[in-house]
């Protein structure tokens, strides 16, 4: 279900992907997702929006190799994604996943050190990533001394040092206040431009999706399927000031038109199964 003028090389692909959670004893299995077809083009910024519980996070975890699909296939850079997270995919989660027992610096260095990178390289990459995320002054601080937005930056820095070519963001700003979210949006755009990585952002905020993305997939209530894919046609150089453009309102309007009914549906059975 990609757009008709899908140019560019396919970076990751989901084909007929479904996910059905086996029900607990005496309960119906939960059909959480799909079937879903999706082609991510190399270097694009793609957002997925949808009502809560529609399987957005499941979609992301399947793409990351954190969950296996019930049916369908996933490929990343031409290779099938199976039970493991492929090299080159970085994930930032909604929950605060910074490690409280490590300093900001050690948190950022965590992945590279476990991979056995030489200390000089670790040092260079970490300093670079911390500077990029505006964390250099907090290198020796512990996460408990930082705000939620700063901790999320720590998690982004930890992912960044591994130089991912596909960055998956699972509602990374969901727990932050509205102003911080706008600013974090700018950070993510900056990150996207500098790394030239492909970005997939899961969000429930239509304005966030409209402001950041090249394309936005609107998902239906559970079982989640793509109902519409909107192209924003923003320039690559953009930031949060885009929210005052007239076409910004048109995009969010079109998304809401699609999602309104679905959100009402999902209210009816919210909390009835895994998100």
């Amino acid at each position: 279900m990609t757009g008709p003028d899908s140019g560019g090389e396919v970076h990751a692909r989901l084909l007929g992907v479904t996910r059905i959670f086996p029900g607990a004893t005496g309960q119906q299995p939960v059909h959480a997702l799909g079937p879903v077809d999706l082609e991510l083009r190399r270097g694009e910024f793609f957002a997925v929006v949808g009502p809560s519980g529609c399987g957005k996070s499941t979609l992301l975890e399947i793409l990351a190799g954190l969950q296996s699909p019930t049916s369908g296939t996933v490929t990343f850079e031409g290779q099938p994604v199976t039970a493991d997270v492929p090299d080159g995919i970085g994930v930032v989660f909604q929950e605060d996943a910074s490690f409280p027992w490590l300093t900001v610096w050690d948190n950022a260095a965590f992945g590279l050190r476990r991979a056995g990178a030489p200390e000089a390289e670790v040092s260079r990459s970490v300093n670079d990533a911390l500077a990029f995320m505006g964390l250099q002054d907090f290198a020796r601080a512990y996460p408990s001394q930082l705000s939620g937005g700063m901790r999320q930056r720590v998690c982004i820095a930890r992912t960044l040092v591994l130089q991912p070519r596909l960055i998956l963001l699972d509602e990374p700003f969901g727990a932050l206040d509205a102003q911080t979210r706008l600013l974090m949006g700018d950070e993510v755009l900056r990150l996207w431009r500098r790394t030239s990585a492909t970005v997939l952002l899961i969000t429930h905020a239509l304005d966030e999706a409209a402001m950041l993305s090249d394309r936005i997939g609107a998902m239906s209530a559970r079982p989640g399927r793509f109902m519409d894919i909107v192209e924003t046609r923003w320039p690559r150089e953009r930031d949060s000031t885009i929210v005052s453009e007239t076409s910004f309102g048109e995009i969010t309007g079109r998304l809401w038109e699609n999602l309104r009914g679905e959100s009402i549906k999902s209210l009816g059975h919210s909390g009835a199964g895994p998100a």
């Binding site: 975890e61 990351a64 954190l66 493991d84 997270v85 090299d87 995919i89 970085g90 994930v91 989660f93 929950e95 996943a97 490690f99 965590f110 992945g111 476990r114 991979a115 930890r158 992912t159 591994l162």
Partner: peptide, 18 residues
């Protein structure tokens, strides 16, 4: 232990013992 720690460990390619 927050379940997200296990997901992070997997995305950072940690072995079981790590």
């Amino acid at each position: 232990i927050p379940p997200v720690y296990l997901k992070v460990a997997r995305t950072l390619h940690l072995s079981k013992w790590q």
